[in-house]
């Protein structure tokens, strides 16, 4: 662990930017390339990179496995819940136009919330899978 000081320092510099890029991809997905799937994977890649460089135990202190496992169903619930809101107002399922005062804003809110749900599920699943594979010792 002494020899990889360059890797550790450079990763420490890079990680915030990677996470920032993930969030940019998430919130800018309406206008440029990107969206929940990509952002979720990039965010998960940040965690995975941190775990590769600094070890699994410190990573699990920052992102506990329980939180990751809660994130997996939470995203699906957000997604499905957005649909149910449309149902409650009297429109069809997953019709976002009712979420705000007019159609354009409603669609924008709907897409935002749905992408957030996708982000949470994808990031949670990827990190959970990574934890599951690496947490298991060689048999």
């Amino acid at each position: 662990m002494r020899l990889d000081v360059i890797i550790r320092v450079s990763i420490k510099v890079l990680l915030p930017f990677i996470l920032m890029f993930g969030l940019y991809v998430q919130f800018h997905g309406d206008y440029g390339p990107g969206g929940g799937f990509q952002a979720g994977v990039v965010a998960a890649a940040t965690v995975i990179l941190y775990a590769i460089i600094f070890g699994l135990a410190p990573t699990k202190r920052i992102i506990p496995p329980l939180m990751v496992e809660i994130m997996i169903p939470l995203g699906v619930l957000i997604f499905a819940g957005v649909g149910v809101v449309g149902l409650l107002v009297g429109e069809s399922y997953l019709n976002y136009s009712v979420l705000a005062h007019d159609q354009i804003h409603g669609q924008e809110w709907g897409i935002f919330l749905v992408e957030a749900g996708v982000f949470v599920t994808v990031a949670g699943t990827m990190v959970a899978i990574f934890y599951a594979f690496t947490g298991r010792g060689r048999s």
Binding site: G29, D30, G34, G35, Q107, E108
Partner: peptide, 13 residues
């Protein structure tokens, strides 16, 4: 939908 990225609007909406 008011979203320029058609991939996003088709995907989510």
């Amino acid at each position: 939908t008011g979203v320029p990225n058609v991939v996003t609007s088709v995907l989510a909406s």
